[in-house]
Design a protein around this nucleic acid. Structure first.
Lengths: 233, 233
DNA sequence: CTCTCAATAATGTATAGACATTATCGTGAG
DNA sequence: CTCACGATAATGTCTATACATTATTGAGAG
């Protein structure tokens, strides 16, 4: 086999032409038959190369019409939202979890909205993630006990709710909301930052087949934390 | 042809088994030959189905060993960072661009760091994006005139730097950094928010083949703006 | 018991051909 | 001139086969 796959080479070359601006948005690329002749390979191979670019959102295909360079790219980035513990570990610091409160209750108004459920028991947790002893992030977590009854018996003093859920509960969809908030008095106290200081809030809703499993809100001191996202390959 | 592609059906079914937890992380899936028999299709088709799951990060393949359900990934989400103008338009508001300052200068220390260049001329812009007349976001923009000489002649009073660059300059890579900051006096004045109030800062570095083209920092009032990311298909 | 190395089982890539699907284009009827 | 519709050119999918690549496994040598 050749050192580098033919479809990879074709993909790369087309990608380059797009990225370099030689082929602008809307440009129609040669039909697969032409590329097939140009590269001296089979149509399947050309097709696979273009498949890759379609997946990456660089090309759109229309039957009979041809394949076209996709419209002006919006900045789309892959945001990795790691488990807090691994995040702390990645910084070479010692992670410690502190469970502030754990309440099992019948879903109140706010719970019902956040979990999009009609009712039923929920588990409400508050914890403080520490790095080298210092407050790192605050987490508020709601778990629908209807969807995840096993959470009732989990020991969240040992394993963070996020880690436990990741390991025990498969999910199919998640949505995140990132915003900047001012530290309320409670947040300020727990994170040991001045009241009103800017904090990064990352909220996450997690679904499993249309049923919401859990809601989480993590709050980081604004001056000590940032989310990084890279271009989506 | 069948209504739904065979490879799509296979992909879907495997996906379901993973998502439902039936196949946990590390589970080895049947060899392609087996699936080929199970679905009564050719190996290429099975392979293509799995290809899709590999792209989505759900499966890892190892030659000779087999294909395995990938370890529970951290939450990876697709973050779409739209052009400010379209963002405002999407909210049904009237967008207006205000150019605060436009300075062409020899790169100073900070410019050099942000653009990762040794020197040369840069264009520094400050603008205020407005929605229905009210301040919406503040933008600081640095453009390397070495990389993008055409920017010298662009009319940034008409078209926002982001939109102009998107349309005129192809880029190959971008990195984002999202954090929460406190409004400095200047920011507070321009955004018409109290000094010290939390703001969402989105910084973006854009590359074109290893050369940095531009740096941008957009600052949004924290209470009026959030970034939303969905699970990465 | 351990190491080496060849057989093997899995994925990785590619081909050539077939038929399906669909939007476009041109032509002919009105 | 307009419209309908069939021919056509493109992509979409699939098959059967072939050979490449690679890590594991197991057998044999030491």
């Amino acid at each position: 086999m050749t050192r580098v796959a033919i479809h990879d080479r074709i993909r790369r070359e087309i990608e380059d032409r797009i990225m370099s601006g030689a082929w602008e948005a809307g440009h129609r690329l040669p039909p697969e038959h032409a590329l097939m002749a140009e590269y001296g390979c089979s149509r399947m191979t050309v097709h696979k190369a273009i498949d890759g670019l379609v997946d990456r959102g660089l090309i759109e295909r229309r039957k009979r019409a041809g394949s076209f360079v996709a419209a002006p790219k919006v900045h789309r980035a892959a945001l990795e939202i790691p488990d807090v513990a691994s995040e702390v570990a990645a910084q070479g610091k010692e992670y410690r979890l502190g469970l502030i409160s754990r309440i099992e209750r019948e879903a109140d108004q706010r719970d019902r909205e956040l979990l999009e459920i009609a009712g039923g028991p929920v588990l409400a947790l508050h914890c403080l993630h520490r790095a080298d002893g210092k407050p790192f992030a605050l987490e508020e977590r709601l778990i629908s006990l209807v969807a995840v009854p096993a959470a009732r018996d989990a020991d969240f003093a040992q394993q963070s709710p996020g880690a436990w859920l990741l390991a025990h509960v498969p999910w199919t969809d998640a949505r995140h909301r990132i915003s900047a908030i001012a530290a309320t008095r409670t947040i300020a106290d727990r994170l040991a930052v001045p009241q009103g200081s800017p904090c990064l809030s990352v909220e996450r809703w997690t679904w499993r087949n249309d049923a919401r499993i859990t809601y989480a809100r993590q709050v980081y001191p604004g001056d000590r934390h940032a989310l990084v996202a890279s271009f989506l390959a």
